[in-house]
Nucleic acid binder design. Structure first.
Lengths: 196, 196
DNA sequence: TTTTATTGATTGAGCAGTCAATCAAGAATA
DNA sequence: TATTCTTGATTGACTGCTCAATCAATAAAA
């Protein structure tokens, strides 16, 4: 056979190229040809390996989701106290790898695409549920269940909102400020949150 | 059959149709022909009145922005206390007219489009600045300036986040819960917010 | 008749997806 | 060792379609 075992390498290269291309143009309107060129292969090869544009996109999203999950697991692993876990969950969402302008832009476009694609919507729900359950679980050890769920809900929305806002900022996104804002929210709610 | 003075009527009909079409498909990939059909005219007429697709979109966005501004002004008008003003600003963003699924979806797509269009970005900044200044101004009468700005920042991000989340929900968006969450955030910060 | 409104037909560009053909590396054969 | 096979990898060219934009023609006021 030829240079055997190219498939995983090419797939990975194409996914990376897709993230870059989508992030650069800020839209899913990138052409398969553009992505392929960015990856240094022909458009035909992208079709050969992924079957179609939509599937390339879904694979790209799954990749992003997997990466986020790994970052999260690794961060939670070295957090011992409940408070540290909460901080870890928050921080991961604004970590360098997740908060890169291209990554943010890519996530944003997938949010939009979710309105047309059931599978994309499903993947996005996986992310939201995971974020929520991680936050709520850690918070449960710091307050009652109902409050924990409420705070997790608010913090999740806050994270999404900061994400979308920073995607529009012209200047460099300020991860530190974003983290501080969310942590302040959680801390304030924990300290003074009677009722919801 | 030109009954004279069709221009404003047609423009309005096309803008309304654009909001509906964009909202339905959840994407700016709607064709001019689809929008025109929705408005009951030919695609050529849309070009005649707006000059092009991009300009139709920008006009649609300006319309949305104007509408939001009117809702806001009217709500602020009948709010007498600072607290009521804060509540009014929050509530307007989740009012029936603004929180309609199609409107939310349309806003979302414009957020994405902003990454490619300077004019769209500018319009979006107008919205963000107005929201922030309205909130901060009202909050200033309830706390010190620095805190007011910080709370306005957080509340703004929270509103955006709830917006994006509700755009993905399958079920009916829950405006009441969203308003409660944001108001709770503001109330909590006002009551217990020493430092940020 | 001049102006405004309106459209069907047409064009030209761009793009996803397909296909037949080529390339090269390893395996089997002699 | 030299000579075919075999097969994954890879591509250029092509197809069929969609769509924004344009234009020439028509209809109704004014």
């Amino acid at each position: 056979m030829p240079k055997i075992g190219m498939e995983p390498l090419r797939k990975r290269a194409l996914i990376d190229a897709a993230i870059r291309a989508i992030g650069d143009r800020g839209s899913l309107d990138v052409t398969v040809a553009q992505i392929a060129q960015e990856a240094g292969v022909s458009a035909a090869l992208a079709h050969h390996y992924f079957g179609g544009k939509e599937q390339l996109f879904l694979a790209t999203m799954r990749h992003l989701l997997t990466e986020l999950g790994q970052d999260l697991r690794s961060a939670l692993h070295q957090a011992t106290t409940p408070a540290a876990r909460v901080a870890a969950v928050i921080a991961v969402n604004f970590s360098a790898s997740q908060f890169a302008p291209q990554t943010v832009a890519a996530w944003l476009t997938f949010y939009i695409h979710a309105q047309q694609s059931e599978e994309t919507r499903r993947l996005l729900r996986v992310y939201a549920r995971r974020l929520h359950s991680n936050l709520a679980h850690a918070l449960c050890q710091l307050t009652d269940r109902a409050s924990a769920v409420a705070i997790a809900e608010g913090a999740g929305a806050l994270i999404d909102g900061l994400y979308i806002r920073h995607a529009l900022r012209n200047g460099a996104p300020d991860a530190v400020a974003a983290i501080a804002l969310v942590e302040d929210y959680v801390a304030t709610k924990l300290a003074c949150g009677r009722k919801a």
